[in-house]
Design a protein around this nucleic acid. Structure first.
Lengths: 201, 201
DNA sequence: CCTACCGATCGGTAGG
DNA sequence: CCTACCGATCGGTAGG
């Protein structure tokens, strides 16, 4: 029985990243043991160390590959060359769809990046900065009421707050779908909750 | 040298809660050891167990007392009997001011409540539910564009996302003050970022 | 209110 | 001599 070495290697590596992300998401980086992760993967603990130098490297491989996916999303939407409000709406929709089937990875990104060693953390934070900056540029194109340059990033962070907080409470199997929530998020961010505009007609 | 037992007891207890909150905030619940916390307090590890049955009880005492403080804030603002938009503005301002000098407690509330035992967690979650519900009622009073009852809580969660995410990136010593950020958050939530209203005049 | 410890489990690595 | 893997156990340290 010949083995396709490369393919099996990659598949097992992907399986380990997925199971480790789930374990870190539910128990936290320090609360999840390598033994638990190995058990969830159906492999020996020693095998984990064949694919990842140590526990911190496993965490890094999860969040760094996830940030690459989010950066790719940013580029995909930019290629559509949409007008500013539609561009932002599409970004929010695609990000929330991505979160929906990456809940564990996303939770790990939010809660465990601080446990990385400094050079590894800096790599991830730089990629996060590029995503935030891409959102900030699109927001600036919508001609916001706050034109102050010092508020560019804070406005983007307000939007990320709306998006990122959603996955802490929204149930994937609940009555409200992620896609519907993306519409509400974009609507509130662009035009607010209140029906009447703030300035008289 | 007579000892005023009650006062010293309370002061030491408060000191332990503060140092433990800092340790949990930076290292996570499982990453912070009882020995580290004891050292930060300048006391023995055994003393910690004089005030709190175990590590989980210490975590509970931090977040439960913090939720009591947030519930008190809700009542204080309600007593002002403000019109809906001003009511919401005041709630956001006072919550963000509270976060400013409770950064460690707040971080612990967000990231470590999941490590409590189920009855303890339920107690905290119930208090969180009451805070969210209070915000949802004020939001409903502002005559939102989304009148659907199923969106009452999601709209409140969007606002909490904006507020709660802020403390993950806003530096207390930076150029942007929490009070200024509270104004921007309320402005975006009520009327959106875009200067032009969504409906024609 | 401390020192001295425990049963168990941690992340990581040995030989084969 | 290599890569891919296992059962067993290392030195330290966790909560209590």
């Amino acid at each position: 029985m010949p083995r396709v070495r490369g393919a099996a290697f990659d598949a097992q590596r992907a399986s380990i990243l997925e199971q480790a992300a789930r374990a870190f998401a539910t128990a936290g980086f320090h609360g999840a043991s390598m033994a638990q992760i190995a058990h969830a993967c159906g492999v020996s603990k020693a095998l984990l160390y064949h694919y990842h130098r140590d526990k911190a490297q496993l965490l890094f491989d999860i969040v760094d590959s996830y940030m690459d996916r989010l950066l790719a999303l940013v580029d995909e939407v930019a290629a559509l060359a949409l007008p500013p409000e539609a561009h932002l709406r599409e970004l929010v929709l695609r990000f929330m769809r991505e979160y929906e089937h990456s809940q564990a990875r996303h939770r790990v990104l939010v809660q465990d990046v601080k446990f990385l060693s400094e050079p590894a953390r800096a790599t991830v934070v730089e990629k996060q900065r590029r995503v935030v900056d891409a959102f900030a540029r699109v927001i600036a194109d919508t001609k916001p009421r706050w034109a102050d340059d010092a508020l560019r990033v804070p406005l983007a962070m307000i939007l990320f707050g709306m998006i990122n907080w959603t996955f802490t409470w929204l149930r994937a199997d609940g009555p409200l779908a992620y896609g519907d929530m993306a519409d509400v998020v974009t609507g509130v961010f662009l035009h607010g909750v209140v029906a009447q505009p703030p300035r008289g007609c």
